[in-house]
Amino acid sequence: MAIIKKNDVTPERPVIIVLYGTPGTGKTSVSTTAENPVLVDTDRGFDRAVQRVDTLVANNWQDITNETNTLKGYKTIVVDTAKAMLDDYLSAYAVQQDPKLAYNSLKRFGRMADDFKLFVNTIRNSGADLIFICHDKEEKDGDNTKHSPDCTGQSKDLLIRIADQVGYVCKENGKRVIKFEPQDCFVGKNVAKLDTKEVPDCTSEEFPTFMAGIVSDVKKAIQSNSEATKAANELLVSLRDDLDAALNPEDFDACLEARMKLPAVYRKAFAAEVNKKAKAKGLTYNKEENKYQAAA
């Protein structure tokens, strides 16, 4: 694979989304409104969805891997549920391949993680998006209740780590919503900085393409972040050229002022560069007048 330079705009890529919530919130129905989906059913719940889609009813890990080439023909792979895939099917498969792993949970999870990441990478390399569905797990956090995807600890950490978005499906003021921004009371992940999404009624015109719209928004946001990073790096190079050419207090004042054109995350570091080079030129910063001056 070629090296992606820091100023390159990264190409659009498949995304991974995790949706979790309590039973009856319509997680499966919502997920299958993605583009050209196939449902990998490991939880025996495909017939409860509002609409039927092509479905692989899997009883073990081999049922899934045997159909990998078939799955590549779809645009979205929906796994319902991630817990059954990871904690049941993959765990059993790891022990089947090496019975000694039944007595070594650390090594067993290492094998599970390797097989899971191979599956994910194979699907993504085919250009398909992945949506993992989880039930909701409530845990006490002091006096508060915290919601998170229902997987064992290591499986959950792996799932959240590879996901671009983690959404909590719940009811708010009588309406179903998906919340991505993490809060004290629930786990979330919001790489794309999406607002809370209200789930349309299943009889509405918006519902059949609802998840496809979210996936599209995530991809656009990631692409936009890449373009913004490229622009920021190019501006930083230009400002450093100006800083290298700075000779007098006015030049350094202009460089310090120009840092405000940069994204906030770059400003402090660039200000430190300006101060270091100004000091090397024998200048000091007058905080009262907010400008550089020759050292007394």
Score class of each variant (00 low, 15 high):
Ile3Arg: 07
Lys5Gly: 14
Lys5Ala: 02
Thr10Gly: 10
Arg13Ile: 04
Ile17Thr: 04
Leu19Val: 08
Tyr20Glu: 02
Thr22Asp: 12
Pro23His: 07
Thr25His: 11
Thr25Ile: 07
Gly26Cys: 08
Thr32Glu: 14
Pro37Tyr: 05
Pro37Phe: 09
Val40Pro: 01
Arg48Gln: 05
Val50Ile: 12
Gln51Arg: 07
Arg52Phe: 12
Asn59Trp: 12
Asn60Arg: 05
Asp63Arg: 06
Ile64His: 00
Asn66Ala: 12
Asn66Pro: 08
Thr70Asn: 13
Leu71Asn: 13
Gly73Gln: 11
Lys75Asp: 14
Lys75Glu: 09
Ile77Asn: 06
Asp80Gln: 03
Ala82Met: 12
Leu86Val: 05
Asp88Trp: 06
Tyr89Met: 15
Leu90Gln: 09
Tyr93Ala: 04
Val95Asp: 02
Asp98Leu: 05
Lys100Pro: 02
Lys100Gly: 10
Asn104Pro: 07
Met112Ser: 09
Leu118Ala: 13
Thr122Pro: 00
Ser126Arg: 00
Gly127Met: 04
Phe132Leu: 03
Lys137Cys: 10
Asp141Leu: 14
Gly142Arg: 06
Asp143Arg: 13
Asp143Met: 14
Pro149Asn: 07
Cys151Glu: 10
Thr152Lys: 09
Lys156Thr: 10
Lys156Arg: 15
Leu158Gln: 02
Leu159Pro: 05
Arg161Ile: 01
Tyr168His: 06
Tyr168Arg: 13
Val169Ile: 15
Glu172His: 03
Asn173Trp: 07
Glu181Gln: 06
Gln183Glu: 14
Asp184Leu: 08
Lys189Val: 10
Lys189Ala: 04
Lys189Ile: 02
Val191Asp: 14
Ala192His: 01
Ala192Met: 03
Ala192Pro: 02
Asp195Val: 13
Lys197Arg: 08
Glu206Tyr: 09
Thr209Lys: 11
Phe210Asp: 00
Met211Tyr: 01
Ile214Asn: 02
Val215Asn: 00
Val215Leu: 13
Ser216Trp: 08
Asp217Ser: 14
Ile222Met: 14
Glu227Lys: 05
Thr229Gln: 09
Val237Gln: 09
Ser238Arg: 10
Ser238Cys: 02
Arg240His: 03
Ala245Arg: 03
Ala246Thr: 01
Leu247His: 08
Pro249Arg: 02
Phe252His: 00
Leu256Asp: 06
Ala258Asn: 00
Leu262Asn: 07
Ala264Thr: 08
Val265Cys: 15
Ala269Gly: 11
Ala271His: 09
Glu273Met: 11
Val274Ala: 07
Gly282Pro: 00
Lys287Ala: 10
Asn290Glu: 14
Lys291Pro: 05
Lys291Trp: 11
